[in-house]
Every structure is written in C-alpha cells, then in structure tokens.
Nucleic acid binder design. Structure first.
Lengths: 139, 139
DNA sequence: TATTGTTATACTCTATAACTATA
DNA sequence: TATAGTTATAGAGTATAACAATA
C-alpha cells in the first residue's frame, strides 16, 4: 500500500527524540526514580508506599529507600494513615512542588525553543500526531 | 497564537511512547548498555573501547566491563589493533548480529501491530510528524 | 610524557528473603 | 492469617583513582 510507512523508522525516531529530551535535563540532583515519585504525588495528591511501588513498577523495598531519600531531602512528607496504621501516607511538601516545577521548566525549555523554530504547518503536524501517539502509548 | 500548542504535552507523550516501546522488549538477556554497544558496532563495523565509551557516554572502566560481558557471551570479538598495540579492536560476531536482528524484530513487532490498527489518515499524520521529529532529535 | 585500557574500590539502584506491626 | 512496610543482604551498573603497557 502506498500510504504505509516503516514502523521501524517511526519507532527509532520516537526513541531518539525521547533520549534527546532527557539529555537536556541539566539539574541532576534527583534520580529518575525519585522524580517519578514526585510526579506521581503531584498527579494523585497522596499515595501509600505500595501504590507508589506499583505505579513505578519497583518492589516495596526499593520504594522504601527512594521515599526515605525524598523525605530526608524535604521534598515529601510521610505519616501513618489515619484509617489503617499499617499504611504510610505520602504527600508533597512545598519544596517538593517547587522542585517539580523547576524540573518541568528545564525539560520544556529546550523543547519549546525547538518548536518555535519550526514552520507553523510543521507544528500543526506535530499537534495532530501527538494525539495519535497518546493513543499508542496507552495501548 | 491559535496554532500554538503545548510543548509540554508533546514532550510528555514522546517520552511516554518511548517508554512504552522500550517496555515491550520481552527478551531481557542483555542490558541497555550492552545492547547500545552492539548497535554501535553494527553501525560502525568496528570500534575501539575508547570510541565505544565516548559514544555511549560512559567511562572507560565501565566500558571495559560491558565489553567483557559481551565477549564472554560470544556476541563480540576483541583483538589488539594491528596499528597501535594499546588499542583494542571490537567487532560483532555472527551471534552478535543475530541477537541484534532479534531484538529489533521484537521491538518493531508490537509497534507495527499498533500502527496497523490505526486509520490510514492517522498513519499519514504520524509519517509527516516522523520527519519533523527527526529534525528535532538532530538539533 | 601522553595515551589506551585495566584493576581496585566504592556508591547507587534494584531485587529477594526474612521480619515487624497491624488488620 | 493476610497485608503493609522495613531491614538484611546481594547483584548490576557506574564512577574515580591508581596502575601497566605502548606510542
């Protein structure tokens, strides 16, 4: 079919672009797993340790360690759940919110700049493709 | 401007899709760094240890270890450079070529399947965007 | 002397197994 | 008994520092 194109080529370019974006993070104070936890908490407001471990696909012992570092750094708060004393309730602190905002700002900065350099038709192409890629990522 | 859209949204979806593709690799016998070396050797034919370390952005001691594992597994061959005895010349073996082909096949399989489920207009959108993303990744 | 790669050692992140506290 | 989380311990992967071999 004439409209078909190479799945391989698209896959590779998506992975390459993701690596390029990732390399742009200049502030290296937090590991990927630590950032993942902060973004989870931003999304959900509060989470238990087990929920975070499931979401990030790591084991509970790993999450205990990751959470411990974030508590020590002052980015998240940890307290026993009021309804079930086995559980721990984790929430973002003000400092945690700030570090998320700053990380996002850094990551977006490079990308925004590149987008600004494109033709408007190219931006529209990307906008249309973004929705389709969202579907692919969710499947 | 009405044609502008959120750089943040596009960045996130690219990263999410890349993670999704990556998660699809079912054969977990090789680490990411090991696979990176094999793909480098496929691209360049032969490399020295230092060249591989630079390309993969790791230190020479790390690359010594990675290369050692690949030599032991039989995927690459290691010999002293004929022109400079300080250097080691690394090349792919037949088994190395095979494992690259299989990895690529696995990664493409999931993605091809998802693309087949799209409308042809959606595929055309992605095709157009792929070229633009290539430019972005190269910038 | 400078360069290429290796060895020694340590740190980070992750895992499994065994344990404690609570339901 | 089952569940939530922690502690003990080990295995990858990476780094810096010190070293050996070669240019």
């Amino acid at each position: 079919m004439t409209t078909d194109f190479d799945a391989h080529e698209l896959r590779v370019v998506v992975q390459r672009l993701a690596r390029r974006i990732r390399a742009e993070r200049s502030d290296e104070t937090l590991s990927d797993s630590q950032l993942g936890v902060l973004f989870q908490l931003e999304l959900h407001g509060e989470r238990t340790l087990g929920e975070l471990a499931d979401n990030e696909r790591v084991t509970p012992p790993s999450m205990t360690r990751t959470v411990g570092a974030l508590v020590e750094a002052g980015f998240i708060a940890k307290e026993t759940s009021p309804t079930d004393a086995r559980k721990v309730r984790l929430t973002l602190t003000t400092a945690g919110l700030a570090v998320i905002a700053e990380t996002r700002r850094q990551r977006d900065a490079w990308f925004s700049q590149r987008l600004d350099e494109l033709e408007s038709t190219e931006r529209r192409s990307l906008e249309a493709a973004a929705n389709i890629m969202q579907k692919l990522a969710d499947s």
